[in-house]
Amino acid sequence: MDYDIPMDGEDTGPTVTIREASPAAVDFILRHVDLAFANSLRRVIMSEIPTMAIDLVEVKKNTSVLADEFICHRLGLIPLNSKSVDDVLYTRDCDCDQYCENCSVTLSLYARCTSDGVMRVFARDLVPQDPRANEWVGVPVIKDDNPDGALILKLTKGQEVEMKCIAKKGIAKEHAKWAPTAAVGFEYDPWNKLKHLDYWYEESAKDEWPVSRNGEWEDQPQEGEGVALDGQPGPFYVNVETVGGLEPDVIVQQGIKVLQQKLAGVIQELAGGDNQAETNGDGFGPRSPEGPSGGYDQGGYTTPFDQRGGASAWGGGGMTPYGATPYGQNGGNW
């Protein structure tokens, strides 16, 4: 950037401090970024990171007490390993008719209870079939000590289920089963110095709204201290807990990557045909999404600019065609 972004009088750029990290969650403090950016990161982590989840189920046999749809819904919610999910295509980008090994992973479930008593069917009974895009993708997440994974259903003597499950790549914006995180903790200004919150209370807001543990990381405001009218939100206390399909640090990195892909998509379209070279020169080519689904360079986003040859689409001199185009008309201009 060739102009400085003032950061509350400090010239440090964004900083990250990791407070806690485990295979299940990462807790960090994000400083010197704006609320707008921090919130974008949170939103993108919550809803736009691709993962794998069972999307189609072919019920071959089901003599259990549960309805087919009920079981299918449960199957969809089982976390599947999504490591290197970039190797899998979205079905909509794939050449196949319905699904194939490039855009899905097939898992088979077969269980039959032959003994007295109750048989429990777990996620471990879902068997991923080869070929697959890579060795991780689509394998049920099993984190317990037994190791069983999630309980799907129970059978008694003589009952049987046989199902063919097709796991596909997707994002949580489409269905929550593709969410990489169960929840993202996000807090700033734990002492509410900025008065962004107006607490409801019965007798005393102070007694009824205990300050979170993040409050220890900031100075307690003095009694009677006024509101900092020019105060900026931050630092941001973020806690990303995985569902199991992706490691928590990978989720954060993927989140930023998805945000960048969004930007790259817009830049690509903005550049159109005429500024192709310039855009690539700025290094956005390599930053485009990796893997076979990386569509930006493969003509995934075509624009009418391409058809105009070298003509600049952006306001050639004083002549602006934009005003002449009625909004919403699907004309050649915009």
Partner: peptide, 15 residues
């Protein structure tokens, strides 16, 4: 858009 890309890069790197 490009500045936001750069910001993302910095945050990724720092993370």
């Amino acid at each position: 858009l490009m500045d936001l890309q750069d910001l993302c890069d910095v945050v990724t790197e720092n993370f």
